[in-house]
């Protein structure tokens, strides 16, 4: 059992009791998963849906894993891989439909419970940049969000996006360059 003892609390809990383990998994990674979802989708409500779906699928998957598979799980990269798959499928499904008219449907990134004052302050800083992120091509947006919003190392991003590390770096640097150009243009 010494191998299990040196595991992190999340995997230890998952091995011990699937449901308690899930609570640990959620507690440890809710911020990363939600931040990624929010900055990929742009909308608060979509980010909630995407986060919920990610954790639900993760739970259903892990329910079928044996102990060895759980022990070698890297929870954060695994959760984000699930999230990316769902997001890409959604994005693909959406691209088949006519695009929404952005003038009628403003991008809503606001926590509905946020105060007016907080929203006003954030509006001047975060919203603008979040809006620019939405203009990046999918793979650049994903790389920039994973690298600079949720602060993942390049090696982990490569695992999540299933591309070589060099590709991750180039997506990130092109994405940043584009964001600077877009930001400066206005």
């Amino acid at each position: 059992m010494s191998e299990i003892d040196c595991l992190d609390p999340v995997r230890k809990a998952l091995l011990d009791d699937l449901d308690e383990g899930f609570a640990e998994l959620y507690g440890a990674h809710r911020g990363v998963v939600f931040s990624t979802a929010l900055r990929l989708c742009g909308r608060w409500a979509d980010a909630e849906d995407l986060t919920a779906e990610t954790f639900l699928r993760a739970y259903r998957a892990v329910a079928g894993y044996d102990a060895a598979r759980i022990a070698e799980l890297r929870p954060r990269a695994w959760l984000l891989t699930i999230l990316m798959n769902i997001w890409r499928n959604c994005a693909r499904a959406k691209s088949r439909k006519p695009p929404p008219d952005l003038r009628e449907e403003p991008v809503d990134t606001v926590d509905p419970r946020e105060g007016v004052e907080e929203a006003a302050v954030r509006h001047e800083t975060g919203d603008e940049l979040a809006g620019l992120l939405a203009l990046l091509p999918e793979e650049q947006r994903a790389a920039v969000v994973l690298r600079h919003v949720v602060d993942l190392p390049v090696s982990e991003i490569a695992e999540v996006l299933r591309v070589p590390q060099g590709t991750v770096k180039s997506h990130v640097s092109r994405g940043l360059k584009r964001l600077r150009a877009l930001g400066g243009a206005r």
Binding site: R30, G31, V33, F34, S35, L38, R39, T51, D111, T125, G126, L129, A130, L133, V144, V145, H148, V149, V150, D151, L176, L179, R180, G183
Partner: peptide
């Protein structure tokens, strides 16, 4: 820009 991106993280 990097500081702005880092500030875009939000808790669930």
């Amino acid at each position: 820009l990097l500081a702005g991106l880092a500030a875009l993280a939000a808790d669930a």
